[in-house]
Nucleic acid binder design. Structure first.
Lengths: 413, 413
DNA sequence: CCTACTTTGTTAAATTTTTTATTATCTATA
DNA sequence: TATAGATAATAAAAAATTTAACAAAGTAGG
């Protein structure tokens, strides 16, 4: 075989290619993609439904469906109940058609996950120890850990066609650049990792990925304008408008933690004063906790002989869940401060729903109720009556799921 | 003629109907709409361009173009310069194909305008005296004034197929409801006016309409993520994302004036404290002016023997433009406070451009520079470096233009 | 359980659209 | 100012899609 003139192997996944084709070939590919997309959004579909959605005739739709079945991308899922006449066949995605890998990089660990074509997580590995630092060594370790996960369990045999990675900080999803971490070369980090691992790679900001994960697999209903608040040590938001992730000009949207709405003298790690994060974040919680302990307050969060400076956000969260008074009070204070920030968002966005996610959201109503109350006090009632405030349903899993979906939907939609 | 079975008169504007058709008729109509839309966005187009954009063959595109010429919607605009071969014909919209009426309702006057199919304003009437009050009489007068404008000049003979109306306050563009003004019945205000005037009517919030007007006719470039700040007595924003107006769940987006970011004891007319509007708006400017005068400061804005309580925002703006020291200082203060609000927006949206519009923006750099400086101080530099801050190019005209475009684009796009 | 009425899916004719070949314009260069 | 190379538009041939008629599969009611 002479390498020079070798054509790319034709696979069943050809419809997801961007290769330049035109005319009827192009139209058919577009329609097939649209069918996959419709089934993805609506669940199993009938030929009649699809024919309407595509604006194509029933015979045409039938032949496209048959091709997609040949390709192994969709399959017959049996008959629908009668609506007064002959029962219609339903068609759904084939789970094993392809897979996607999600990598959620946190400050002190990584979560891995494998997702199939139908958005089901088929294999997961959580809390793999890792320390996120802005060094080449940290990046090398990350790549090694990904490779190692790829050799495990069902990953070995799955056809993985996309890799999604969540990172904190400024991420440009479109170009694949990460500016806050691993920005050692001009070449996009996504491209560097693609070359190392051999799978097309997509970067996303952690809050945006979590927002997307939460939204796609939610039971919230059919909301399309969603703000996801990621409450970790820092506070970021993921913005979904019209069901799509909003990036901003360079992918820097959602720096909610650094909006200047408090009048204090606390210097945020971004270098400014008065940031929301100085009063409503995991960092703020830890700082307030230390101050109170030094003032003489007591807390069960502080284990015997433990120096107060070793306390972590998670210690306080767990203490609160175990009814520790001080922790609950401080979290409530954080919630109230957060509510002021939420009031800003609600007035500007008039969203359908605000979802509290990230580590701090695990405290449930301890943080939600004070936030809701402050939100009501500080925003226009006509507008805030319109908005639900809920706790994330996916919790920490939102990250991996979002990472998988980022890769998946960038490729197939 | 028996009225019972009479079909709607078929006109050249049939492609803008929503009437249910299917199959090839539907496809052709969609494609024709798409052609109009492409020419609308890109300016005059050639058959080859359109054929690519539509995903249709050249002969097909040619036949659609010919039909549109028959319909009187587009016309041959001559030949393009050669790109190395035979010169291509360009096609553009026919200006007189149809017209749209825009009504910009301000607090103390109304601006009217007539726009043709090519987005040109063909007739305008500004500052028609009117007092916006939430009474049936005020609404009646508004309707009378619209009818009267329709009898004037070129309006008499133009085929007007849409009417756009701007109002302040909470507007739901989709349902046609206005909640802050003229909400006397359950029936949408847009529908009531449609019945009165006989032209399909579309309501829009003033800031959003101005944003849309500024964006569509701008020379700003090809930006798609734009925030338009409407600085009048109140302060609202119009949000354009991906080139489209963002409404929020119920159309209440953009209540920028009421985000709680100041710690003061001034009660906003919305009933809350600390709203941006209490420190950065026309109202705030007037209040600050009165306070300073009562403290003994002097200003040329205050004409001989004029009681200070009669001062208006426009007096102060004009004085500033005539180098009045106090007015300039106060406007600069307003600008600085505004900058704090802009910092919030920039951190959240990472927009391509912020446009300052509305009455206060006429003070140009007097308000822009302090705002820019505060913005830089208070938002992440990586993000704010990304954002331009400009003064509106259309000024007060943005309103009527936006109203016309709201009607126009709701119908034809 | 037969008949009338629905809805789904298939087939074949009719129509539409794309392809391919050809002609028409235009530039650049010898 | 001819001629080769390039792009645009049209015409005829080929292919694809829709339409419309019909068969299949179901419900509901006497």
């Amino acid at each position: 075989m002479h390498g020079t003139n070798m054509k790319r192997k034709k696979t069943k996944l050809d419809i997801f290619n961007d290769a330049a084709v035109s005319g009827v070939v192009f139209k058919n590919r577009s329609l097939k993609k649209l069918i996959v997309s419709q089934i993805n959004h609506l669940g199993n579909c009938t030929i009649t439904d699809l024919s309407k959605d595509l604006g194509a005739s029933v015979p045409k739709t039938t032949s496209l469906i048959n091709e997609l079945i040949q390709d192994g991308l969709i399959r017959d899922e049996g008959k629908l109940d009668s609506t007064g006449g002959r029962r219609a066949s339903m068609f759904g995605l084939v789970p094993d058609a392809c897979h996607f890998l999600g990598v959620d990089v946190k400050k002190f660990h990584i979560n891995f996950g494998l997702m199939d074509f139908t958005k089901k997580m088929t294999y997961q590995k959580e809390k793999v120890p890792f320390r996120l630092e802005n060094t080449p060594e940290s990046l090398e370790l990350l790549i090694r850990l990904i490779k190692s996960f790829l050799g495990e369990g069902p990953c070995k045999n799955a056809q993985i066609i996309g890799l999604g990675i969540n990172l904190t900080g400024r991420i440009n999803h479109k170009t694949g650049h990460s500016f806050s971490f691993f920005h050692f070369k001009e070449e996009p980090l996504a491209e560097i990792i693609h070359k190392e691992i051999g799978i097309p790679t997509f970067l996303e900001n952690d809050s945006r990925a979590m927002a997307y994960g939460e939204f796609q697999l939610n039971e919230h209903g059919k909301e399309n304008n969603i703000l996801f608040i990621n409450m970790d040590y820092g506070t970021g938001i993921g913005i979904l408008l019209d069901g799509k992730v909003y990036y901003g000009k360079s992918g820097f949207s959602g720096e909610f933690g650094h909006i200047p709405i408090f009048e204090n003298e606390i210097i945020c790690h971004c270098g400014k004063k008065g940031c929301l994060e100085t009063e409503a974040s995991g960092h703020a919680l830890v700082r307030k906790f230390k101050t109170q302990i030094k003032k003489g307050y007591t807390s069960t969060a502080l284990k015997k002989n433990m120096p107060v400076d070793d306390i972590t956000m998670n210690d306080i969260i767990n203490a609160a869940l175990n009814e520790d008074q001080l922790s609950i009070e401080l979290i409530s204070e954080i919630g109230e401060n957060l509510g002021k920030g939420l009031a800003v968002l609600v007035n500007i966005f008039n969203p359908e729903i605000l979802v509290l996610g990230g580590a701090l959201s695990e405290t449930g109503d301890y943080i939600r109720l004070p936030a809701r109350s402050a939100l009501n006090k500080l925003s226009l009632s006509l507008v805030n009556n319109d908005t639900k405030l809920k706790i994330s349903q996916l919790g920490e899993k939102a990250g991996v799921i979002g990472a998988c979906l980022t890769a998946r939907d960038t490729i197939i939609l």
